[in-house]
Computed example of a mutant assay.
Amino acid sequence: MIPYGRQDITQADIDAVVGVLQSDFLTQGPMVPRFEQTVAQHVGASHALAVNSATSALHIACLALGLGQGDWLWTSPVTFVASANCGLYCGAQVDFVDIDPRTYNLCPKALELKLAQAERDGTLPKVVVAVHLCGQPCDMQAIQELAQRYGFKVIEDASHAIGGKYRGEFIGNCRYSDITVFSFHPVKIITTAEGGMTLTNNAELASRMALLRSHGITRDPTQMTHDADGPWYYQQIDLGFNYRMTELQAALGVSQMERLDQYVGRRHQLAARYNELLARLPITRPWQHPDSYSGLHLYVIRLQLDKIGRSHRQAVDLLRGMGIGVNLHYIPVHTQPYYQRMGFHVGDFPESERYYAEAISLPMFQTMSEEQQDDVIAAVRKVTAP
């Protein structure tokens, strides 16, 4: 089976992890700050905080921005559930904004219309989570302009997008957002086995997130209520969580970062080859906005079902039966039973639902060979033949 995604672990990665195993620190040592500094410098952000998952990163980002009871978080329906759940973790209410039919990202025009209505209703969001689906950035300038007009905060869920660029600058520099989040899950562009990171240019937000990721505990004398009792002393000054990343994970991340640009470049080579060799089939290939340089975590096609003579499910089953590990990213969050119990219904976000009815994620990973890609293309040709 050719998987839709796969990590690339080299001997250098293994040596980096073994080096930590042979050191004095398995957690809370020097490697996590080194990883944070490496990523921050690469993307051009002032502060970076490594955590144990992108879900944890989203949670503490929301908390740092003050999201809580009585507030609203808005995001795209076409994302993993964590992009919405992070609002619920904070006691906020969640709503969605439909996608752009070409980029599959949150649509700025739909956002503007919904904001105008929410202003009349008194239900403006406190936070908007802009998800860079497949690695392609949202129209962040348009979203930032709306944030300034309507007073909400912006989190970039860039779980798919490390190594990508928006308007010639690396995603993660937070030029158009308050906080950016990366994921380092094994199928992502680089991996720390599990892990995530928040980035910001705001020192106060960085300090708040650092506190929240480690139990709300500080050893900083300037944050304490009185002088330390001794060198052992710490204070819990807030209710935080155990969201720390280990030294082992950070060492793997530092090693993987050395190949980030190479990985993204290879994904662009594969995407260009897909674009060329799938051009005449009854599918819609992914469209890239001219302002974007996608991280290309995913290569998503949409089936032109009226032309292929079989259902979406039949096409997926046939491809998997031929050893092509296609997947679907994602089931619109508002159609999940948990969210339907909140009052959402099928039909609420039609562009997202049309996307779900047609989308298939083809295999895309940096070590994919042209022979493997040829097998994928041959299978797609067979499945989409009239």
Results as ranks from 00 to 15, higher is better:
E36Q: 15
F241K: 08
N202F: 10
H297P: 00
F80T: 10
D374S: 15
D317F: 03
G168H: 03
M342P: 00
V78H: 02
S56R: 14
N105G: 12
G321Q: 00
I2Q: 10
Q262R: 06
N327F: 14
N327E: 05
H59L: 10
R102Y: 13
D8A: 11
A385Y: 06
L124F: 03
V129A: 07
T75C: 10
T38Q: 11
V128G: 06
L303P: 00
V316T: 02
L65N: 05
Y338A: 08
S56Q: 09
L199W: 07
T38D: 11
S369N: 02
L211E: 03
P77T: 01
L318S: 07
I9A: 01
Q340P: 00
I301W: 11
L146R: 11
E169S: 13
L88D: 01
Q340M: 11
Q314K: 08
L21T: 09
V78K: 03
V78N: 07
D317S: 02
I308H: 01
C134Q: 11
Q223C: 10
C107N: 15
G325M: 04
V154P: 02
D121T: 13
I14V: 15
I171T: 14
I324F: 08
E112H: 14
A158F: 13
E358S: 07
P332F: 03
Y89L: 12
G265R: 05
R280C: 07
S292P: 05
R313S: 04
R320H: 02
S46A: 14
M31P: 03
C62K: 00
K382C: 06
S311L: 01
T218H: 01
R213N: 01
D227R: 01
E112S: 15
H47D: 03
P386N: 01
L115S: 06
Q223G: 04
D15F: 04
I217A: 13
A50K: 03
Q373N: 02
R310H: 00
T103Y: 11
V51S: 13
P3G: 01
Q22C: 10
A142R: 15
Q236N: 01
I60V: 15
S46R: 15
V376I: 15
L278E: 05
N202G: 06
Y89D: 11
Q366D: 05
Y233M: 02
M257P: 06
F80L: 09
P137Y: 06
Q117N: 03
E119T: 04
L303R: 08
P363R: 09
P221S: 14
F344S: 00
T200G: 12
G164F: 09
P282Q: 04
R267Y: 14
T246L: 10
Q373I: 05
R219L: 09
E370M: 10
I217W: 12
A385T: 04
N173P: 10
K126Y: 08
L260D: 13
N85C: 07
N52Y: 09
L303Y: 04
L21I: 08
L278S: 05
Q7T: 09
L67W: 15
F152A: 14
K109A: 14
C62R: 00
Q336F: 12
E119W: 13
K165L: 13
G343R: 00
L319H: 00
F35N: 08
I360K: 01
G230A: 08
Q11H: 03
D24R: 15
V97S: 05
V131L: 11
I2K: 04
D24C: 06
V154Q: 01
V129S: 07
M1D: 07
Q269M: 09
Y233G: 00
Q11K: 09
F349H: 06
A359F: 00
